[in-house]
Amino acid sequence: MAYSKELLEHYEKPRNVGSMDKNSTDVGTGLVGAPACGDVMKLQIKVSPEGIIEDAKFKTFGCGSAIASSSLVTEWVKGKSLDEAATIKNTEIAEHLALPPVKIHCSVLAEDAIKAAIEDYKTKAPGSAVTEKEDGLDQSATG
């Protein structure tokens, strides 16, 4: 079976591999796993006071499709707002990487991971993305 150019590209040169401080209040961490294949995926986002994802990192132990899916998602979410990032669908990931049907669950894992990271960020800093955004606007208006 031939894998797509996009998939191999992300697998061979994964983007944004690494970790952030999960205790930091501007970092959201999503940790998900697919027990059937023993995959575990950690996806982290660093969110600006304006609610924009400034940086994203991942660490995945799993097959090539799982690595490529998480790598792709970290690229896609950078610069997006939390709400925009939350709309990423596994089908878009699977389509972009041309994942074979048996590997669709890898894209599901990546979607779950970004959602979990956003959720984690929101529970850690409840309402901060909204309130701080308003604060920021106020400051720029008055300043």
Partner: peptide
Amino acid sequence: EGCNTVSDPVLLM
């Protein structure tokens, strides 16, 4: 196989 994901943070950590 392959269709479920878990989010048991203690286990996954």
